[in-house]
Simulated assay, not measured.
Amino acid sequence: MTDDSGAAGQPRVTDGDEPLRRAVQRIADEILFPASADVDRTGSIPASHWTAIADAGLFGIAAPTTVGGPGLGFAQVVDTIEVMASGCLATAFTWMQHHGVVISLAGTDNVTLRDRLLADTVTGRVRAGVAYAGVVPTPPRMRAHRIDGGWRLSGHAPFVSGWGIVDVLQISARDDETDDVVAAIVPARDQPGIAAVTPLPLIAADASATVAMEVDDLVVDDAQVVSRVSLDDFFATQNIGVRLNGTLPLGLVRRCAALLDRGGHAHAGRTLRERASAIRTRLDAGIADADALLDARAEGARLAVEAAATLVAADGGRALIAGSDAERLARQATFTLVAASRPQLKDLLVERFSTGDAGVTPPGGDTGGVGGR
């Protein structure tokens, strides 16, 4: 994955990218979205979704060509995830976390681990999830203690998606002596040390199989460690994650706009796309500025709520029927207000919704005292 974006923050699609982009749109429109009501109702993602995604090479979109990836720029990766989110939020939310593990494996100094897992994660033969939220707060919820030849991990991972879907899990913890962030990849099934797993019934994207996980003396040897970085270096990379998570609400806006077009409200659909484009540009520009990035991320989440409300109003009474597209998208928009969030982002949204603030921060301005970590 390279740093590559087009004019005005829009993805630059080259001739080589176009077949993949068409495949992504086809999967979103012809496979994911037609099944999204059933996925929402049953709380289960069909195996055929994962097969279609693997066959299109979409498990490896963040991988460089040297390890079998398509060599997409960052802008193309962002665009791909956003289109997938427009098809099925639960599928996209589960699948997008796989890419963090691919990136970790592609860049690790642990050659043995990379050789053992990278090729299979790029193809999707091995599906991966992450549990890193335990290292974000201070004090951390997940701790690592150095032992002979490895580490002992203990703590709480509050929000782990893909349980029962993924094959391996990258767990991050803070070294209790140095505060370094240690990340290890472990089997996601029958793993000694994963003491308890509590399913979390979600109002949307419940098919992501999200759980709270308790870890008690999980022993990992050095051969399983994919990275060890300082806490400052860990947080320095978090803007990339915030930008990727910003694809989820904008994917919902794409779908709402398409449904408004189909229902005879093309002007409303066009207006929502224009607003989304402006937010997308701000998200791209904010990669190096955590405050600006969180500001744009908040606006994206709010726009998703407003787009879903527009669709509800346009659909009228049928939007009140459980299982309708508008009803489901309204719940999913609510999900994006909180999922993959940060305390600062929540504060921004509370302020925006309570005051009606448009949330446009002038150049050089602040965000109401809200920090960016």
Rank of each mutant, 00 (worst) to 15 (best):
D3T: 15
D3V: 15
D4I: 13
G6A: 05
A8N: 10
P11S: 08
V13E: 00
D17H: 11
D17S: 09
D17W: 03
Q25F: 04
R26S: 15
I31C: 04
I31A: 11
A37R: 14
T42Q: 08
P46L: 12
A47C: 00
S48F: 06
S48G: 11
I53G: 01
F59S: 07
G60P: 10
I61V: 15
V67E: 02
G68E: 01
G71E: 02
G73H: 02
Q76N: 14
D79E: 14
D79K: 00
T80I: 08
G87Y: 11
T91D: 06
T94Y: 11
M96R: 15
H99P: 08
V102I: 12
S104K: 04
S104E: 11
G107R: 12
D109T: 15
R114I: 14
R114F: 05
R116S: 11
L117D: 05
L118F: 08
D120N: 08
V126D: 00
R127V: 13
V130K: 00
Y132G: 04
A133G: 01
G134P: 10
G134I: 11
V135P: 04
V136D: 06
P139C: 05
R143M: 04
A144E: 02
H145C: 07
R146Y: 06
R152N: 10
L153T: 10
L153E: 03
P158G: 05
F159W: 10
S161C: 11
S161M: 07
V166P: 01
V168N: 00
L169A: 00
L169M: 08
I171S: 02
D176P: 11
E177Y: 01
D179W: 09
D179K: 03
D180W: 05
D180Q: 09
A188S: 10
R189W: 10
D190N: 14
Q191A: 11
P192E: 06
I194P: 02
T198D: 06
L200K: 09
A204W: 07
A204R: 08
V215M: 01
V215Y: 03
D216S: 15
D217G: 10
V219C: 01
A223C: 01
R228L: 00
D233L: 04
Q238K: 07
N239P: 09
G241P: 00
V242P: 01
L244W: 06
P249Q: 02
V253A: 03
R255T: 15
A257F: 09
L260H: 07
L260C: 06
G264N: 03
H267G: 10
A268V: 15
L272V: 13
R273K: 05
R273A: 03
E274H: 12
R275G: 02
I287E: 04
A288H: 11
D291N: 05
D291V: 15
L293K: 02
D295E: 12
D295P: 01
E299S: 13
E299P: 00
R302E: 09
A304S: 09
A307P: 07
A308F: 07
A309I: 04
V312Q: 08
G317L: 15
R318A: 12
G323V: 15
V338A: 12
K346I: 13
K346V: 13
E351S: 12
T355K: 04
A358H: 13
P362E: 05
P363I: 11
P363V: 14
G369R: 11
R373N: 01
